[in-house]
Structure formats: C-alpha cells, structure tokens
Write a protein that binds this DNA or RNA. Structure first.
Lengths: 203, 203
DNA sequence: CCTACCGATCGGTAGG
DNA sequence: CCTACCGATCGGTAGG
C-alpha cells in the first residue's frame, strides 16, 4: 500500500551503499571494492547490495559519480559565484588545496587514485575518469582565458600549460600529504601554483 | 651432483617470475598481482611460483625492488657520470621525461602507481615505496644544492621546493601520457621543470 | 530486501 | 619444481 515509501527507503539504502563504497574505494581502490565486504560493513546480504547496481562495475561507476560530486561540492561550488578571471582562478587553487587537506576521502584524492588505477584499463570507469578530468580542465582553462582577456595575466599565457601545471601540483600535493604526511606541502603547492599561473612572489 | 646449476636455474626462474610480476603490477597494481595468474602466464604451478617468495607480500616487495632498479637504470645511471650541479639536474629532468615516455612499464610509472595504491595502507610495501622516493629526492636535492653552491642558481633557491615541483610535474606527466595520451605533455613538463628549477625561457 | 547456492579463484600448505 | 588439497572469498543468480 505504500510503494512511494518503499522506493524512498530503497534509495536511502542505495545511498548508504554508495557512501560506504566511496570510503572503501578511497583507501583500497575501486578494484579493491568487494560486494561481500560492503555487505558485511552494512550488515546486509550480498544480494541486497548488488541488487541495487546489477554488477560490480556499475557499483564502481556509482561510487565514482559520487566522488566527482563531492569534489565539485568542495572545490567548485565555493568559488562558482565569483566572477570569471584571475580572482576565481586563485580561489580555485586555494579550494583545491583545502580539499586535498580536508580528509573527505580517507585515502586521499579519489579521482587521482582512480586515474592511476584505471589508466591502463579500457572500459566505462576509465572513460568516466577521463570525462571528469576533462570537465575540470575546461573550467580551469576558462578562468585562465578570462584572466588573460581582462588583462590580469600576460597575453602570452597558455591555458593548457597552466592547467597541466596546476593539475600536476595538485596530484603531487596529494601524494606528499598521503604518502609522506608532509605538512609543508600545502604551502609549497600554493607557491608553485601562483607561479604556474604567472604571478611572481605575489599571493 | 650439480647443486650450483640447480641453484642458478632456480634464480633464473625467480627472475622470470619477478619480471612478469613487474609487468602485471604495472597495469593492474601490486594488489592486482595474483599467484594463480602469474603461474598461468609462466606455465608453472602456483606452488612453484610462491615457493620462491613465501608470501604474496614478499613477491610484491620483489617486484617493487625490481621496478626501483629499472627506474634507477633508466633515469639515474645515464646521468651519474656528469658533474653534480645544474648540468646534471637538467639531464635528470630530461632522463626522467624520457623514462616516462619509454614504455618500460606497460601501465605507466610503477613507482607512482604504487605510491597511490599504498598511500593509505601500512606495511613493508608502503615503507619501501617511501624509501624509494626519499632516496630519489635526496639525489635531486643534492644537485640543486650543488648548483646553488656553484652560483648556477640563485642563492635563495629552496631545494625542497624544487624537488616538490619536479616530482609533481613527473607524476602529472605520467598521468597525461597514460590516461589521456597527451603528446604535448612531455614538452609541457620540460618547460615547467625548467621554470621550477629557476630558469626563465632558457633550456 | 532475504536465504541458499553456483563455479571460479584467492593465498597458502603438505608432501614429495 | 610438481600434484593435490585446504578454507575463505570472489561476483553473481534463483527464487522468494
């Protein structure tokens, strides 16, 4: 008599599964996800877990989608209202660094880990990782171009070069934090990002 | 009657296993290594494979050790004879980039992948990865300091900052090559490395 | 959402 | 180096 409530409950269960999957995959990788472990963590049956997704691959894709949403919420949403250009580009860098320090993903940046894990494997997970990076790249390059147009950065600035360097520095920061626990790394990354954008010692 | 030959044959088998393990782990990760798959690839029994190592973890350590040796051979050995300082530092960067393009590791830089895979797990594999990075960091920083001492770089140059940026750029290059197949990335990395070292448009 | 089950594979051992 | 085997776990399905 209450199919709506049943559907809502099912959605809630699904969200719990995805949240747990994100946490597990963040430390053990998307391939390290297992249906049995998830079921145990959530006190459910394996059939109850996999029933929401059909296959392990679709569960991986759901976890990846959620991780991308978290990244967007932490890095893009806080700066989205700023005007396009240098101001927002600098805010992006700071939000990016803050995100990597935030600990939302217990095992460090989910997207970076997924990109390394799937860079040699074909399939929809890899494709989604690539699309996620491309989307983020487009956003960053857009602000670089806006800054150049507004005369805030030299006309010779190459947006693709800036993106390459900022992304590399973010990945390097993630490694320094997760692998080495290097507390100096955020400041180093910030300094290097400022320089990559084309600012001198300014900040 | 020929224990020497038998021991030599065993060593050869062990080396074959390690070589195969490096190739598999480079695409599927060190956790993706399985004894059964290795046995199948080499037309051996699982017991024959694991007998050389005892446990899977020691097999992972052996593969990691070999990967570090390959990195050293490809990046350090070619420049080792150069005098310490700016010249060798620039040669290191070029050898590093060439190594990432070389395809020795079918799945991309083994050390980078291992550092992401194990950055959230305790144990000897993680410790060995950290030690490998620390050793390489020491070598790079040594040449930065030598270049400063020789007046080839500004006295204010911070070796740890240079290392942080060069390492980040190498990891970013690996991602660009493996995930995106970006052919412009090596030139971008080279340019950014030159700048990170403190050179202007020079090269 | 559950129980019960499938064949395959996991890391590893015994014994030779 | 092999065969033969251990208990545990894998992804997934049948049927309810």
């Amino acid at each position: 008599m209450s199919p709506r409530r049943s559907a809502a409950a099912a959605l809630e269960t699904r969200e719990e599964i995805v949240a747990r999957a994100v946490a597990v995959a963040s430390t053990d990788g998307l391939e390290g996800l297992t249906i049995g472990r998830l079921a145990g963590d959530l006190s459910m049956s394996k059939a109850g877990v996999i029933g929401h997704f059909g296959t392990k691959e679709r569960l991986q894709l759901a976890a990846l989608e959620e991780a991308i949403a978290i990244f967007t919420r932490e890095v893009w949403t806080p700066v989205a209202e700023l005007p396009a250009g240098l101001e927002r580009l600098l805010a992006i860098c700071d939000a990016w660094i803050a995100h990597l320090q935030s600990g939302v993903f217990p095992g460090g940046c989910f997207l970076t880990a997924a990109s390394m894990e799937f860079d040699g494997r074909a399939g929809p997970v890899r494709e989604r990782v690539i699309a996620g990076f491309e989307q983020w790249r487009a956003a960053v390059e857009r602000d670089v171009r806006a800054a150049v147009k507004a005369g805030q950065l030299p006309a010779a600035t190459d947006p693709a070069q800036v993106w390459f360097e900022l992304n590399a520095l973010a990945i390097g920061l993630n490694q320094a934090l997760q692998l080495l626990g290097d507390d100096d790394a955020p400041a180093r990354a910030r300094r290097a990002m400022r320089r990559a954008i084309g600012l001198g010692a300014a900040g």
